[in-house]
Structure formats: structure tokens, C-alpha cells
């Protein structure tokens, strides 16, 4: 797991064919952000339908919202647009970028992977939306393109599940299980899913996590549960990495603030999406020195008992 020198701004990409639901998802993100400052890049303003009373200012290629979020049009030079926001005194908590509906989202992934090497951003989550209702009508070429793109994503939303017949959904599920085995697949209507799956959980310095009730259903989407633990004991780095391997097998997303043995009082921030995990230095010290881990996974695969025992094993 790479250990980064300082915390970077996470980037989430959203791909999918025209009409699959990308804009719908972005609207959800902008409305639910809570107090996070999210900067969203979209292809077309016309499609974004933001409530008038949410808008602070608007001009031809930038809409600022009252909740601190910003929505920009995707211009030719995405990289320098991102840099402008990174240099801002009010750094965003995350970037969300909509891939063009006709382009290969992997091309966008590649340019972000390059930007990641500069150390200022972190590739967090690649989301790909599939129109569950239309997929089975697609010809061979289109269907294969969708499958190839989905296989490169961390999270696949089989959207418009309400419009698809149950049997069709089942065969879709089988297609993606076999052909996009490294992606987590989730059924949605109108792209409704918990923001925590898209942007990741927030770690709270005032410790809202309850150790006595470590697994709780996630608001916003049933079928996913979260698990969390905290400890005052400092962790062994190699045992933690072992723990993360299991975590990756059982949950989709995890985040943590970790104090390691033999390291300064500055905690590491841990983030995991799918099978990718990184550690980076937190921006400020933490007087309390309590390590926290929170994970989200599917109810049928997030194995609470084993997570508990692995966590205990790690502390030993």
C-alpha cells in the first residue's frame, strides 16, 4: 500500500452511455453533500437541473451553490481547471468528473492516473452506470463496449432496475459477475444510492462510532451495511496491511484514521475502494490518538464476525 506524504483531494469519475443516468447521479451528489465542498465537472449544463434556490451565482461555465459546491463545464483542459481549484484557499473535499457519454471512460482514467503522480489528487472511485432496461437491447458491439467499460470501474450501478424484468436483471447480474469480476455491482432506481458509496464515509473526530453495535444498516440504501471500530492501541503496520487484505475481500469501501507504532503522533488517513487502498499523512495532529476504521459492504458479504476477529488479531 503506498504511503503518501500528505492528504490529497479524492477524484470520483462517473461514466456510462448517453441516457444511463450520469446526470441524475450528479444531481443527487450535489443535493446531499451535507457540508462537504464538492467540485463537479459535467459535459453539459443544460442537463443539470439545479433548484433555483440552491444557486448562489451562475455564469456560462460555472455555477456556485449555496452549500459550497461548484459545478463546472468540462473544457479541453481538465487538468489545469483542477489545478485552479487545488490552489484555492478553500480546497474542495472531492472532485467528481462526468466522462463523456460517447468516449471511453478509461481514457479519462488514464489522464487522472497521470495527474495522481503529481501527488495533489487521489483517484478514489470509478463509477460506471449501466441502463439495465436498455442493455439487453444493445447490439453485440455496444454491449461489449459497456461490459469492457464496466470491468474497468470500481462500482457499477445497474440503473433503472425498476424498468427491467426480474429475469433480465438476473441475467445482467450474471454477465457482470463473470465479466467484471473486480467491480462491485449495485442495483439502483434513478441512481439513488448512499452518498457514502460514492464519496466515501466521513471520519469524525468526535467519534460517533459505537463499538458495541459495529454493524448497522446504511441509510439511503438497503442491502449495504457499515461496520466500524476504534482503538487507543497503536497498530502494527504489517498486521494492518494484512487486515486490509481481508477488508478488501469483504467490503467495498473503507476509511480510517490510523496511529501506527513507532511513528509520530500524526495519524495516517486510510482509504480503500474496491481492491485499491492508500495511506496518507493526515493534515493535522490529533490529541486523542484514537484509531478508527469504518467499512461499507454488501449485507451478504460483509462478515462482521470475521472482521471482528481479524481486528482483534491485529491488536494482539
Amino acid at each position: 500500500m503506498p504511503d503518501q506524504a500528505q492528504s490529497r483531494i479524492p477524484i470520483v469519475t462517473i461514466g456510462g452511455f448517453l441516457g444511463s443516468g450520469k446526470t441524475t447521479l450528479i444531481n443527487h451528489v450535489l443535493r446531499q453533500t451535507d457540508d462537504q465542498r464538492i467540485v463537479v465537472f459535467v459535459n453539459d449544463f443544460g442537463a443539470i437541473n439545479i433548484d433555483y434556490d440552491l444557486i448562489e451565482t451562475a455564469d456560462t461555465n460555472r455555477i456556485s451553490l449555496k452549500n459550497g459546491c461548484v459545478c463546472c463545464t468540462l473544457n479541453d483542459d481538465l487538468i489545469s481547471s483542477l489545478k485552479l481549484f487545488m490552489d484555492d484557499t478553500d480546497r474542495p473535499d472531492a472532485f467528481v468528473i462526468e466522462a463523456s457519454g460517447i468516449a471511453d471512460p478509461r481514457a479519462l482514467d488514464r489522464s487522472i492516473a497521470l495527474l495522481e503522480q503529481t501527488g495533489s489528487v487521489r483517484f478514489d472511485n470509478r463509477i460506471y452506470i449501466v441502463d439495465a432496461d436498455q442493455f439487453l437491447n444493445a447490439g453485440f458491439e455496444d454491449a461489449e463496449t459497456i461490459i469492457d467499460h464496466a470491468a474497468a470501474a470500481d462500482l457499477v450501478l445497474l440503473n433503472k432496475q425498476d424498468l427491467a424484468a426480474a429475469a433480465d436483471l438476473q441475467s445482467l447480474e450474471a454477465v457482470f459477475a463473470g465479466s467484471a469480476p473486480n467491480s462491485t455491482v449495485l442495483h439502483t432506481c434513478h441512481c439513488r444510492c448512499s452518498l457514502e458509496l460514492i464519496l466515501g464515509q466521513r471520519l469524525s473526530s468526535n467519534r460517533v462510532f459505537k463499538t458495541e453495535n459495529p454493524v448497522e444498516p446504511l441509510s439511503g440504501h438497503h442491502g449495504f451495511v457499515s461496520w466500524s471500530r476504534e482503538t487507543k492501541r497503536k497498530l502494527d503496520r504489517s498486521k494492518f496491511e494484512q487486515f486490509v487484505k481481508y477488508l478488501a475481500a469483504t467490503s467495498y469501501r473503507a476509511k480510517g484514521r490510523i496511529f501506527f507504532q513507532n511513528q509520530t503522533n500524526q495519524p495516517r488517513i486510510f482509504s480503500m475502494v474496491g481492491r485499491r487502498a492508500v495511506l496518507e499523512m493526515a493534515r493535522n495532529d490529533d490529541a486523542e490518538q484514537i484509531s478508527q476504521i469504518v467499512a461499507i459492504g454488501k449485507a451478504n458479504s460483509l462478515d462482521k464476525t470475521r472482521l471482528e476477529s481479524w481486528f482483534e488479531e491485529m491488536l494482539r
Binding site: 453485440f140 454491449a143 461489449e144 461490459i147 469492457d148 470491468a151 474497468a152 454477465v175 463473470g178 465479466s179 467484471a180 469480476p181 473486480n182
Partner: peptide, 25 residues
């Protein structure tokens, strides 16, 4: 020619599924 390189199709099983779909078409 159907592209099944690992950068496009991640696992051996996924390769096999793609071949099956191509044969069906």
C-alpha cells in the same frame, strides 16, 4: 478481431464469457 487483452478483460473467466458471447453473435 476481439480485444481480450488483460487491460480490457480482467480475468480468464471474463475472457471465456466474452468468447461465448461472440460465438453466440
Amino acid at each position: 478481431v476481439v480485444d481480450i487483452r488483460a487491460e480490457t478483460v480482467p480475468t480468464h473467466e471474463a475472457v471465456w464469457r466474452k468468447i461465448e458471447r461472440r460465438v453466440a453473435a
